[in-house]
């Protein structure tokens, strides 16, 4: 007989595995986001008319690119649920509905990490002036926090928009203003890391703001997500 101990996280893992499996079998979001990022770097090169960027300009280029790439992924996040009846399946299953939110946020987090594994080196090669090696540790911390913010807000906004008539418009319209504080904190954190003449560790207060942002939106999303599935 199988053990009956409660495993509250199991539905989340199952749903997350489903998402990752879908993306592996039919890669859709991640390649699009990677290509979009690299194209945007090229566009920034011509748009700014510069071969190399550093400091706050570099931070801005990198983070805005990641932000816009994330919007692509956020738009697609719940499409399979909507098209194939995944919402009904989650509602029918005897599980906590928050599992769907958690799995989607984790999936988006992993997708963004994959994108950054390609996009950040591409950025370093194509546009970045100073050597990226000194900044690596700091960048990992900042980008992890940024991914957290993007994943939490993204999963929430995506769920809010998926069953509206104009979801492609709603996602960036709601998502981008909501992410402004995260972008402020992230670019202030990244600027000293990418500064010309050696990276310096970002001010602790900006990392704290990012972490606080993640925390607040994590709790908010946890509180309100149920209502988005209720029917």
């Amino acid at each position: 007989m199988r053990s009956r101990e409660p495993r509250p996280m199991r539905p989340t893992w199952v749903l997350l595995r489903k998402d990752l499996l879908l993306e592996r079998r039919a890669p859709e979001s991640v390649p699009a986001m990677v290509l979009f990022s690299i194209t945007t770097f090229v566009l920034f090169h011509f748009g700014l008319g510069r071969d190399e960027v550093e400091g706050s300009l570099a931070a801005g280029v990198l983070l805005v690119t990641i932000l816009f790439a994330a919007i692509l992924g956020i738009n697609r996040l719940f499409v399979s649920e909507q098209a194939e009846g995944g919402f009904d399946a989650v509602l029918l299953a005897p599980i906590d509905r928050t599992a769907l939110f958690l799995s989607k946020a984790m999936a988006l987090f992993l997708f963004l990490t994959l994108v950054e594994l390609v996009a950040v080196p591409a950025f370093a090669i194509l546009l970045l002036g100073p050597s990226p090696w000194d900044a690596l540790g700091g960048l990992v911390v900042v980008l992890a926090l940024v991914n957290g913010a993007l994943a939490l807000v993204g999963a929430l906004v995506s769920a809010l928009a998926i069953r509206t008539r104009s979801r492609d418009l709603i996602v960036p319209m709601i998502g981008l203003p909501l992410l402004v504080p995260a972008l402020i904190a992230a670019s202030r954190s990244c600027a000293p890391l990418l500064a010309e003449g050696g990276a310096s560790w970002p001010a602790a207060k900006w990392l704290a703001v990012l972490a606080l942002y993640d925390l607040v939106f994590g709790l908010l999303a946890y509180a309100v997500f149920d209502f988005l599935l209720e029917d």
Partner: peptide
Amino acid sequence: PLRFSIEDPERQARYASVFAVI
């Protein structure tokens, strides 16, 4: 715009409330 793009009044009220809380 968010409210306008949801036709079912009940869902409109609920989604708009979620938005307003966030």
